[in-house]
Design a protein around this nucleic acid. Structure first.
Length: 480
RNA sequence: CGGGAUGUAGCGCAGUUGGUAGCGCGCCUGGUUUGGGACCAGGAUGUCGCAGGUUCAAAUCCUGUCAUUCCGACCA
């Protein structure tokens, strides 16, 4: 045993002690990011970026299956362009980064570094949409955007972040509304199937909707500590931007009409969601679908004859079906165990002399840490099954946590008490007035409406805040 | 944007009343090890966040600034 055991172990602060510190520790120890010299801008390291690449692949496939095409827009928006839609500019102006000098000369018009690209897409759509035959336009772009945030945290809120933004134009309102719902469903499926994260979905209130949108739909997963994270949004714009940008098309009846628009986005924040939903005190736990390494092979007593050969053999076999890494470095086995647990590799495969004798190996789940001995015959099947199990365990555990942390409030006092004593979601009735949202937020110190879910429970007849007749059941919570 | 804390080797930290920088881990070399963070021997690594100022002399004192972090406010 080591003499200075304590110091040799790279400690991760326990979640229960300090969740924020735990998050920062995990992000750094798992080698996802490094800080940069610019506030709120992070270096996404290979391991972190590989997660993003897997997220991209998965989402991109889903988008393209539905007929979307990828494009790329400029990163600069002329100031006058951003200002064309009034609500939009009001929403974003406070957090814009602006370029005023280029090539040593003051620019005649200031350039906004895109905080989102609605205006750029609209400018382009104005040029290319003439007829109903040009519709729908189903565009998406993968890019970076900049929003000058006051408080930043890796992945959750950064000044620059990566995302995809879909921007579509449709002939009819109905078609655009369908698209908005369709893409929200894509996000919901993606969160469940790829990230193993269950989430409430629903509509944002007037107060919380996107600047310039008619309606905003959202996916609201709950983090392990009960705090919400807006995991993705899908907006219906009506023809507001089309009017502001003068985008018209000749309709089937030979009249000029405005097309109806949507936009939808998921960002690198989703990586933050993975960390905070699944992680534990030993570090990250990655859902198999997006894990850069799905199986890590740790040879035991690798200097002994035949061990490395066998390990390589298994690696080659598994690499046909999975993302596999064989760690044959000189580090001790124990070190490797801890290292890959910290990095959240869903499945570990141990292979040593004893196993080889028995024609077996050991599979260890990152979630349960249970060791199972499996035969080397049918190994691929066993690994496939084990990974599926990890996914299911993660999903069910997150679902369980959400259940345990979702409360209902039918009176004002009850609402305030839960907000004060518990960390989680509160289901409560609401009259539809922004004033009540603001009051509840002030009284609780930050509990806001997350969404009006598609399926509402009828908890009572009156608003939990003002006592007037209730219009909706709203899910409330604190957010990152 | 307000309040607090921090910034010294890759990481974690020490550095006293100012005198020109150290420890542990990691890293490199060689050897022994290996089923839950191994051991021995040898070795390398610093614009003390940055910019000014005070001083014969600054990691240390002063001013400013940048970044990180926590708490608020703000926030698709």
């Amino acid at each position: 045993m080591a003499k200075n055991n304590e110091k040799m172990v790279e400690q991760i602060t326990s979640m229960e002690v300090d969740f924020a510190q735990w998050y920062t520790d995990v992000v750094k120890k798992a080698e996802l990011v490094d800080y940069s010299g610019v506030k709120g801008c992070m270096v996404i390291r290979p391991y972190g970026y590989a997660i993003w690449e897997n997220i991209q692949k998965d989402l991109d496939r889903r988008f393209k299956e539905l007929g979307h095409e990828n494009v790329y827009m400029p990163m600069f928006i002329p100031e006058s362009l951003l200002q064309k839609e009034k609500d939009h500019v009001e929403g974003f102006a406070p957090e814009c980064a602006i370029v005023t000098i280029g090539g040593g000369n003051t620019l005649s018009e200031r350039l906004i570094v895109r905080p989102t690209s609605e205006t750029l897409f609209c400018e382009h759509y104005r040029n290319i949409i003439q007829s109903y035959r040009d519709l729908p336009k189903l565009y998406n772009q993968w890019c970076n955007v900049v929003r000058w945030e006051k408080t930043t945290r890796p992945f959750l809120r950064t000044s620059e972040f990566l995302w995809q933004e879909g921007h579509t134009m449709h002939e009819t309102e109905e078609e655009a509304r369908e698209e908005t719902q369709r893409m929200l469903k894509v996000y919901e499926d993606f969160y469940a199937e790829a990230l193993a994260i269950p989430a409430y979905t629903g509509k944002k209130t007037e107060k919380e909707k996107f600047a310039g949108a008619e309606e905003t739909y959202t996916i609201e997963p709950m983090m392990h500590n009960g705090v919400a994270l807006q995991g993705g949004t899908s907006h219906y714009f009506g023809d507001g931007f089309a009017r502001a940008f003068d985008i018209t098309y000749t309709a089937r009846d030979n009249t000029q009409k405005y097309p109806h628009q949507t936009s939808w986005g998921v960002s690198t924040r989703s990586i933050g969601a993975i960390i905070m939903t699944h992680g534990d005190d030993n570090g990250l736990i990655l859902p198999p679908a997006v894990a850069p390494i799905q199986v890590v092979i740790i040879p035991v007593a690798q200097h002994k004859e035949g061990v490395l050969e066998k390990a390589n053999e298994l690696k080659n076999e598994l690499a046909k079906s999975f993302r596999v890494k064989l760690d044959d470095s000189d580090n001790s086995t124990g070190w490797k165990f801890s290292q890959y647990e910290m990095k959240g590799v869903p499945l570990r495969l141990e292979i040593g002399p004893r196993d080889i004798e028995n024609n077996s190996c050991v599979l260890v789940s990152r979630v349960t840490r249970e060791k199972t001995f499996v035969s080397l015959d049918n190994l691929t099947e066993a690994v496939k099954e084990a990974l599926k199990q990890v996914h299911d365990e993660l999903y069910n555990r997150a679902l369980e946590n959400r259940k345990n942390r979702t409360y209902t409030a039918t009176s004002h006092e009850e609402f305030l008490q839960i907000a004060k004593e518990k960390s989680g979601y509160i289901k409560a009735m609401w009259c539809g007035e922004t004033a009540c949202e603001e009051q509840l937020k002030d009284e609780t110190g930050g509990v806001k409406s997350r969404c009006i879910p598609f399926v509402e429970d009828h908890l009572s007849d009156v608003c939990v805040c003002c006592g007037k007749p209730a219009k909706h059941m709203v899910i409330w919570g604190r957010q990152y």
